Computed example of a mutant assay.
Amino acid sequence: MPLADQDLSPPTDLATAQALIARVRAQLDAEGLAMRAPPPEPTTCCGRGCNGCVWEGWLAAVAYWRDEASLLLG
């Protein structure tokens, strides 16, 4: 079963990314599909809002992980 429309938008913050990961994992589990774990949350953010913050990279990695899951879910 394909991902729901709400799961096709790129995550924009920690809360939406965590919710997306939970929904996608639940759907993978429900369909009995195995996939690599989602990217771990960063632990090295300095909190200064740097251009190219580790959180930006993590959100992009979560979106990529979601895209891979979407391929598995068809």
Rank of each mutant, 00 (worst) to 15 (best):
M1H: 15
P2L: 09
L3C: 00
L3V: 02
D7F: 10
D7A: 10
D7N: 12
D7Q: 11
L8D: 09
L8M: 13
S9I: 09
S9L: 08
P10I: 04
P11G: 02
T12G: 13
T12N: 10
D13H: 14
L14T: 14
L14S: 12
L14F: 15
L14V: 15
A15V: 13
A15M: 14
T16V: 13
T16I: 10
T16H: 08
A17L: 03
A17R: 05
Q18Y: 06
Q18I: 09
Q18K: 12
A19F: 10
A19R: 13
A19W: 08
L20T: 02
L20Q: 05
I21M: 07
A22N: 11
R23I: 05
R23E: 06
R25P: 05
R25D: 02
R25G: 02
A26K: 12
A26V: 06
A26L: 13
Q27E: 10
A30Q: 07
E31W: 02
G32A: 02
G32L: 01
G32S: 04
L33N: 06
A34Q: 06
M35A: 09
R36D: 04
R36M: 03
A37F: 04
P38W: 02
P38E: 00
P38N: 00
P38L: 04
P39W: 00
P40L: 02
P40E: 06
E41H: 07
E41N: 09
P42E: 01
P42G: 01
T43K: 10
T43Q: 09
T44R: 14
T44E: 15
T44P: 03
C45G: 15
C45T: 13
C45R: 14
C45V: 14
C46S: 15
C46T: 14
C46Y: 14
G47N: 05
G47K: 05
G47V: 07
R48N: 15
C50K: 06
C50N: 10
G52V: 11
G52W: 12
G52A: 11
C53H: 06
C53E: 07
W55R: 10
W55D: 05
W55N: 08
E56V: 14
E56L: 11
E56I: 12
G57K: 11
W58T: 03
W58N: 06
L59G: 01
L59Q: 01
A60T: 14
A60Y: 11
A61S: 14
A63P: 04
A63N: 11
Y64P: 09
Y64T: 15
R66M: 07
R66F: 05
R66Q: 07
D67F: 01
D67G: 07
D67A: 08
E68H: 09
E68S: 11
A69C: 12
A69N: 03
A69F: 00
S70N: 14
S70F: 01
S70H: 09
S70T: 05
L71M: 15
L71H: 05
